[in-house]
């Protein structure tokens, strides 16, 4: 499914994998997360506290939101009072009210569930955050809100990020390095470093860079877009 992949994520670095559906992005991410083991090749990770946010919020339906956010802390043996305190603090920064925290996930709106899922990932203070198209199903307002929360938490913890997305604009907005994948077999066909700091990327900059990016022949080929006229 995947071929000849050499991928390295440095400490505190944000790497985005973009590519069409079915090119093996999720497989690659699951390999990095240790959810899958490779048939060939090796995966070495020196990250001690990875966390992942999935495409769907994947909260445990039988646990209240507060307990869901504290799940990773509980797994680390943090006592109840302490993890509730930490989870509640994080949730407040994520815009969840005390009311939301007392509800079961089924009673929360999709946006609130996504916030809770992001809070759950950040609760463990991850040094590597894996994002599996985590924002792809959200509306643009909520997306930009979550981008802001993500940037804030990243700055606070210095977490590295490995994200997969098919949204070029999202990659341009968040990543230090963008890798373009193409399918069957999945391989990395282009790499692009973004040097502008995340804080300095305003809307106009993001639009301009994305527009520029989408003209690249590698990207057009990977997403099976027709070649540009005169290019």
């Amino acid at each position: 499914m995947l071929e000849d992949i050499a991928l390295n994520v440095g400490e505190g670095e944000a790497v985005a994998l973009v590519g069409p559906s079915g090119c093996g992005k999720t497989t690659l991410l699951n390999l990095a997360a240790g959810l899958l083991t490779p048939w060939e090749g090796t995966i070495a990770s020196s990250f001690a506290r990875p966390a992942m946010m999935f495409q769907q919020p994947r909260l445990l339906p039988w646990k209240r939101t507060l307990a869901n956010i504290g799940l990773g802390l509980k797994a680390r043996g943090v006592g109840r009072a302490e993890r509730d305190r930490q989870a509640a603090g994080l949730a407040a920064r994520m815009g969840l009210t005390a009311d939301d925290l007392a509800k079961f996930p089924g009673a929360l709106s999709g946006g609130m569930q996504s916030r809770a899922a992001l809070a759950r990932a950040f609760a463990v203070g991850p040094d590597l955050l894996l994002l599996d198209e985590a924002f792809s199903a959200l509306d643009i307002g909520l997306k930009s809100e979550l981008y802001r929360l993500l940037a804030g938490e990243r700055a606070a913890h210095g977490s590295a990020v490995l994200m997969i997305t098919h949204d070029l604009m999202e990659a341009v907005r968040l990543a230090d390095r963008i890798l373009v994948m193409s399918g069957s077999p999945g391989r990395i066909v282009a790499e692009h470093r973004v040097d502008t700091p995340v804080a300095a990327r305003d809307e106009a900059w993001v639009f301009a860079r994305t527009a520029e990016f989408i003209r690249w022949p590698e990207i057009r080929a990977a997403f099976a877009l027709p070649p540009l006229e005169g290019a």
Binding site: G34, L35, A51, F54, L60, L71, G72, A75, V124
Partner: peptide, 11 residues
Amino acid sequence: QLKEVARMFGL
């Protein structure tokens, strides 16, 4: 999917 969550968060 929930099994993956459990593994990811080291339960």
